[in-house]
């Protein structure tokens, strides 16, 4: 075969898909409270008593309707984290998070679910640890939009040090 015959043809394409997403009544309550009052509400299963965030209508484990609302404190514990060196694009804004940054999973006190978010800590393994206490930092009132980005990040609570250091 000649070089011409082995030229493989391709065509670039970009697909832009618009969509409208409805939060539903349960998530609407949590997002509206977060936006308007800076408070975080989760929901409790009447059977297993698990406190679930984001709230959903049915407890997946017990198959019963979740009922009681529980306000969570804005403090929690880091259960897992990473120091991200890749410039991840936020698919909802198209803007990248500039690396390196700390990204982790926080369990708000009293909650059974964890929340993945940015951790405002130095991207240094010696300064972030599993078990670190953190608190929610919110966008200022009036600038909140009603999604998870109303939480800017978690920040470490002061006056703590890594165990064993």
């Amino acid at each position: 075969m000649t070089a011409r015959e082995t030229e493989w043809i391709s065509i670039p394409m970009t697909v832009d898909v618009p969509y409208r997403f409805a939060a539903g009544r349960y998530l609407t309550k949590t997002l509206t409270q977060l936006r308007d009052n800076g408070r975080i509400f989760a929901v409790e299963c009447p059977r297993c008593r698990r406190i679930q965030l984001p709230p959903r209508i049915v407890c997946a484990q017990c198959h019963v309707r979740n009922g009681r609302w529980v306000e969570l404190p804005l403090e929690g514990t880091l259960v897992a984290f990473t120091i991200m060196f890749l410039p991840l694009t936020d698919p909802t804004t198209g803007k990248p998070h500039e690396p390196p940054f700390v990204y982790g999973s926080v369990r708000l006190d009293g909650c059974d679910s964890v929340l993945d978010h940015l951790i405002h800590a130095e991207p240094d393994r010696g300064k972030v640890w599993v078990g670190m206490r953190c608190r929610v930092v919110l966008r200022p009132p009036g600038e909140r939009v009603g999604d998870l980005s109303d939480i800017v990040h978690f920040e470490p609570l002061p006056d703590q040090s890594r165990p064993g250091s």
Partner: peptide
């Protein structure tokens, strides 16, 4: 609570061979 909805879009790039 007023039902909450968002308008967003997903953009994907590709190259078909």
């Amino acid at each position: 609570y007023q039902p909450f909805e968002v308008d967003q879009h997903l953009t994907a790039h590709g190259n078909y061979w």
